[in-house]
Write a protein that binds this DNA or RNA. Structure first.
Length: 357
DNA sequence: GTTCTAGAAC
DNA sequence: GTTCTAGAAC
């Protein structure tokens, strides 16, 4: 069973601002209710109204009686947000508009009214449910046998990294509780010593669980940053560091001289927690199975790390062009010779000519 | 993100 | 008949 909760973006704000704290509690309480009906969707859903019951505690005069309706769709991994009041409710700075309804996923930022009261949504495993995860205490990597197995890789990558110190989890640790929904899976993987191939005080590198090429790593910051959309100018150094670590992974790879690599981000990632893909360009993998896989790495859906850094430096944020999701539906085209192939199996057969084993 | 599978395409 | 895709479910 999954529960949904809404959390203020800044813990400090939740604690120091009583009105926000009340909303937070109200949402936690209301949304975690049992399903109203036994429909096909066994988890059901619950609608929450922000307004009447909280009116007395909200000092902000702009907060009307019924400003926003939130409906958690736990099975689908999003929350429907409907703006009831006249004041602008926004998701990722885009105003919803009175009477309109949009979906908000983990990682997206909800402002209840006028860019105030920032919230994110999180899906959490129900401790009483079947999908609850048993969280074990984390052991130091040096004491973990499995990570010793990877020590060679880690040491190779560490050679040029002077400040490799024991990991400070910071926000990431509290986030590890929210592993109920599949989109939160990276948070679990990045904290699993068996998955880690490199780590320092800022980032961790794991092998992609379903690699789409002979070499495919993910570089993740310990800091909890939901997605590209949340990146700001102050993250510039961190993103540059992620790039450097990605480059080091390539350098220590025995195939780095025979294979080309790319480092970049998916414009609209499925998994929460910002992650840099470091992927060899052979795309020789049984896990590459469909058009979405292919186009997500070979069209402009894949945004080069350098371009992300440049956007942060010049605009202070990362802009994804409208219609980017449509790129995933483009015909299959070889990234080497631009030849169009009719099916995935045909494409894979064609790729063998460019990348013989 | 993956898995499963109905039905489209061949 | 088989292969393959694409959308629902998870």
């Amino acid at each position: 069973m999954l529960k949904c909760r809404f959390a203020g973006l800044s813990a400090r704000r939740v604690i120091t601002n009583p009105s926000v704290c009340l909303i937070y509690r109200q949402l936690c309480w209301a949304v975690a209710q049992k399903p109203l009906s036994k429909t096909k969707n066994a988890l059901g859903s619950k609608t929450v109204f922000l307004g009447p019951s909280l009116e007395v505690t909200i000092k902000d005069k702009k907060f009307p009686w019924q400003q926003v309706e939130l409906k958690a769709e736990c099975n689908k991994g999003y929350v429907k947000v409907k703006q009831l009041g006249l004041n602008p409710t926004s998701v990722d700075s885009v105003v919803v508009g009175k009477g309109n309804e949009v979906k908000i996923k983990p990682g997206q930022q909800l402002h209840i009214v006028n860019q105030l009261y920032p919230y994110t949504v999180q899906f959490k495993a129900d401790p009483n449910g079947n999908h609850s995860s048993t969280k074990r205490p984390r052991e130091p990597a040096s004491e973990d046998r499995e990570s010793q197995r990877e020590a060679q890789t880690m040491n190779a990558a560490k050679q040029t990294e002077e400040n490799s110190v024991p990991v400070s989890h910071g926000e990431a640790k509290t986030m590890s509780e929210n592993v109920g929904h599949w989109s939160q899976g990276l948070k679990t993987s990045m904290e699993d010593p068996k998955m880690q191939v490199y780590k320092d005080d800022k980032v961790v590198v794991i092998k992609d669980k379903y690699p789409k090429a002979r070499h495919h790593w993910l570089v993740l910051p310990w800091q909890s940053i939901p997605s590209l959309k949340a990146l700001r100018e102050e993250h510039c150094d961190l993103v540059k560091h992620m790039q450097r670590v990605g480059d080091q992974m390539i350098q220590q790879c025995p195939d780095s001289h025979s294979l080309r690599f790319r480092t970049g981000y998916h414009a609209i990632p499925s998994m929460s927690h910002v992650h840099l893909h470091v992927i060899s360009q052979d795309f020789d993998s049984p896990c590459l199975k469909n058009k979405k896989h292919w186009n997500s790495f070979t069209t402009d859906y894949f945004i080069e790390s350098h371009d992300v850094i440049q956007m942060l430096e010049t605009d202070g944020k990362v802009t994804v062009k409208e219609g980017t999701s449509e790129l995933l539906k483009l015909p299959l085209r070889c990234h080497m010779c631009r030849k169009e192939l009719p099916t995935i199996p045909a494409l894979k057969e064609h790729l063998k000519s460019h990348f013989p084993r």
